[in-house]
Design a protein around this nucleic acid. Sequence first.
DNA 1: CGTTTGCTTGAAGGTCTTCAAATGTCGTGG
DNA 2: CCACGACATTTGAAGACCTTCAAGCAAACG
Lengths: 191, 191
Amino acid sequence: MNKDYVRRIQENISISYDKSLILSENGEIVKIKKNEYWLSEGKEADKLAFIIQGAMRSYVMNEKGEEINLLLQVNQDFIGDYESYISGKKASFYIKALIDTELFVISKKSIDQLGCQDAFWIDFKTKMSDYAFLEAKRRIEDLLLFTPEERYLNLVKKSQEVLQKIPQKYISTYLGITPQSLSRIRKRIMK
Amino acid sequence: MNKDYVRRIQENISISYDKSLILSENGEIVKIKKNEYWLSEGKEADKLAFIIQGAMRSYVMNEKGEEINLLLQVNQDFIGDYESYISGKKASFYIKALIDTELFVISKKSIDQLGCQDAFWIDFKTKMSDYAFLEAKRRIEDLLLFTPEERYLNLVKKSQEVLQKIPQKYISTYLGITPQSLSRIRKRIMK
DNA sequence: CGTTTGCTTGAAGGTCTTCAAATGTCGTGG
DNA sequence: CCACGACATTTGAAGACCTTCAAGCAAACG
């Protein structure tokens, strides 16, 4: 893996260059074309990834067969089915590339092996799970405390990158509304 | 701490009697009267608890000063500000007893000390954080995939105990709606 | 027994959903 | 390079549901 990649991994997760070098030796770079899956429901999902460059979405199907986006991820974000990762269950959702994307992928096995060599990586694992929880908690508060319009404004404030890279029809179900409603919300806000 | 308590802790978290005995020696029983706080925004919150018997709610204030219930907890449930617990930040919400409640409380310090003595407790910590994440994930899916009415029906299926112990006005904001709307939903369903 | 608190119901207004059609945008092949 | 088709976004109309404010009823508690 070249030096540039190691640096980007380092930036992604704010650890030392040395540690990111070790990490990079235990994972791999995967390139995914637009609209290709990195993960599908029912498949093994015992690995996690960071987005080095690109954009992806994690979604489930509702009872009507509509895709509902649980997460929209861009540069520096983690992706993966964290539930499968920790429990060994099959994946419960899909992860698909919104544009051509480069991932750094590492398996559970590799992370666990690193943990045996250096307690740093046990700590690292804890931080990852804490991060996953905190993200989820923020999402719950966003959904409970704000209206769809406020949620959209929160997203505008929080991530220009998501707004620019990701089509509205995906953003809408992430916010819990239909694409038509998001279009009308944007119109309302314009004024 | 008496034997009965140890057994209830054991049931709560499905570990061996021996382990629950060790745990019980490192924590304490706390009794909280109806409408009393166990935790307030801005306070230290470096401890967690299990509900041995009773019911509590975790809530935040929105901009209008209304209380929004993030969680409703009954027997066997964990309570605590897990974000404060892991990060050391001050509590970001309130936890209050809905009825007279008995808690088993254990501090972060105690759990960390246990971890030094026996790797079992490191594993135990991981399981707790995984549990916290999975609960949060289920909540997000509930909010994104279902309508308020469906969410109420999901709750009916999931927890009769919550329905029985907790007044409607608290259940409503947990579901993301007003008490009036929940009243109308229940009326609709009756038919 | 009366007061407080919670629950229900009514009316008006706003937002979201659905279905449908029109308009925009983008990429590909001619 | 343009034209076409595919797909995304916008807009319209009707209907369902939620919210707010307000009032009436029920239950709980001192």
